[in-house]
Design a protein around this nucleic acid. Structure first.
Lengths: 228, 228
DNA sequence: ATTAGCATACTTGTATGGTAGTATATTTCA
DNA sequence: TGAAATATACTACCATACAAGTATGCTAAT
């Protein structure tokens, strides 16, 4: 039932972080269905650990609204809430627009060439249809912009927002990604940062993050049981 | 050593939330000094609860970067990090600027009159020098704007950012608050929302949240032991 | 047949014991 | 006297036992 990536176990993680990572991964990839019951005991047996680190992982996941804990009753995987999804997108859009403007003021050569290298790899992955790696490169691209602008905590927040955005993206089938468009937008963002053109950078970023708004209502009807 | 507000205990909170609230309150008000050692056992004895709910409260506080946990070594109250403080301010500024623009599009009459009533009370508190209540009204003012704009999660984030902003404000003595200025800005924000003038609202909000940048370096030298 | 009451099997919340790693003080030896 | 070895007292981490609330299904009485 659970997709267990044991690699995470060795990385000198604590048991708590191990459980957290496994559960988060399975939730945001929809391998565990929204609304599904999940109990501390069940997970502790599946992962062969005690209830204590499982509970602590639950606390973190509940804080990120990926779990809903009802004392003495049970715990469920959070249902997809379109209002919540839109707010997550809104938060991400405005934080990244502000961040990319900062990137246009100070951005080191090292980070700039990191972006350039990333773009080359994106191009290669599109040619090779390596979507898993593209997904990772997409994340890295945005992470580099945030870190290059000295906004490490904004990157943490973006990841939290992505958890909620990702579930609805998963429903609309991976095929829905227009990677050519994404790459062209990434290229324009890179060019704007290099040219220190804050207005252009922000405009492209806005366009880039507004398109996450799409066909939500259709999905909601098709997968009604996953929605609040 | 700890300021324990037992009122929080009765509010049908779980023990975990009780411990969390007490600790958070004491940390952001500087009643516990940044850098100070703190242990699960110590807190569990002080609050007369077991270590389990204390640990779980620690998990939440560490996630918000108010605690730093070093396995098998110990836990300290996070030192004040000026880079972190500025990033918190930055996040708050940009989220609230975006939110107040939304408020200028749709804002219910109920929320609008809530803001108006809040402003009246602010005026009264300034006359009576009731700063504790002013502090609460200030928070409520911003909360009402967020909730009235349907951005409940942004309010949660603002509160988390405030935790870090507040510690440095506490250092600069409460007297430093120019409540007359704050009130006049609040009035202008209210007027802009009422007039649905998004540009004006955002401009005032920007001004309102940029002034949190001040004399940080001086404080850092004066209270060196509290800083990273 | 229906319903009230109870037993049972869940759930999460809390308390506590033991483990392993770390820092520090003390002892022991050169 | 000084330094290495050891004992001790911490720490957070994890496992487990118990408590308390809840849902469910069975039994028994009407």
């Amino acid at each position: 039932m659970l997709n267990i990536d044991s690699n995470k176990k060795v990385k000198n993680f604590s048991t708590r972080d191990y459980v957290y990572e496994i559960l988060r991964e399975n939730i945001i990839s929809l391998k565990i269905e929204p609304g599904k019951n999940i109990s501390e005991k069940e997970i502790s047996e599946l992962l062969e650990v005690s209830r204590t680190p499982v509970r602590e992982a639950f606390v973190k996941l509940a804080q990120e609204e990926l779990l809903e804990v009802y004392p003495q009753k049970g715990t469920i995987i959070a249902l997809i809430d379109l209002h919540h999804v839109e707010e997550s997108r809104f938060i991400r859009e405005h934080l990244e627009r502000a961040t990319v403007r900062v990137a246009c003021e100070n951005f080191s050569e090292a980070h700039l060439s990191q972006l350039e290298e990333n773009l080359h790899q994106q191009k290669k992955c599109i040619e090779e249809n390596d979507f898993a790696k593209l997904f990772k490169l997409d994340e890295d691209f945005h992470k580099t912009i945030a870190y290059g602008s000295g906004k490490e905590r904004i990157w943490t927040l973006i990841q939290q927002m992505n958890a909620h955005l990702n579930r609805i993206r998963m429903l609309s089938l991976a095929a829905n990604y227009d990677w050519e468009l994404i790459l062209s937008q990434h290229k324009r963002i890179y060019a704007a940062i290099k040219a220190k053109d804050a207005n252009a950078a922000e405009a492209v970023m806005e366009e880039h993050l507004k398109k996450l708004l799409f066909e939500q209502e259709k999905l909601r009807q098709e997968y009604q049981q996953y929605f609040k």
